[in-house]
Amino acid sequence: MMETMGAWVGVGLTVFILSFLYKDNPFYKLAEHIYLGVSAGYWLVVVFHTNILPELIMPLRESGGDPGKLAMALTPIALSLLMFATLFKKIAWLATIPIAFVIGAFAGAQIIGFASSDLIIQIQSSMQPLWASGQTTWREAINNWIGFAGLICCLLFFFFSREHKGALGAASRVGMYFLMISFGASFGYTVMGRISLAIGRAQELYDYHYATLVFTVLVVAGVFLTGRLRKPPAESAEMKQP
């Protein structure tokens, strides 16, 4: 019983959300607000039981009067409570203390994160043999040259303290091209994954015998979206069927 009801709810909401492809409508609005409400409530429960209870409240209970442990347990609670100062105008500034704590900590952690992964690893792996010798073939060497030149041009694209004119302008333009190829490749790789997701969703709808209706909706929506992007869509009655 609960399962069947669940399937109905799931399929109904799916169709409501898909109707957004056509235009904003009351069904989408309903699904959106249910989604927002349920997920906000659900995550409150989950975060409370997986983070707040074990990380904030339990340590306090388990400290057993040991002053060191008590201090360790009380500090995050105090910091969290300071955040609630925003609700009261007079002491609202107190909330900046925990904010400063978190922002400082993670700004520092991210300095290291970027320096020790992205930065040094990319610099190191950009060092490649530039001519054929030993294990490097001429083909690899040429590819290394292209990669090397591309990298330098792309880096020059990000140059801020000089106007992009003359040689720098040309180099940054080439850099832009490399970036565009890079973005295109990334785009191409993602397309396939996204389409298979949509197929998976359609499959699920099919499993619950809504195939005909749902596919009609899907196709109509798809045609409108790709073919008539800029035209204001007109009202349509059949779209409002759940």
Partner: peptide
Amino acid sequence: LSQEQFAFTAG
């Protein structure tokens, strides 16, 4: 809005 990625997106 919501801590869920796509609920947020819908919102």
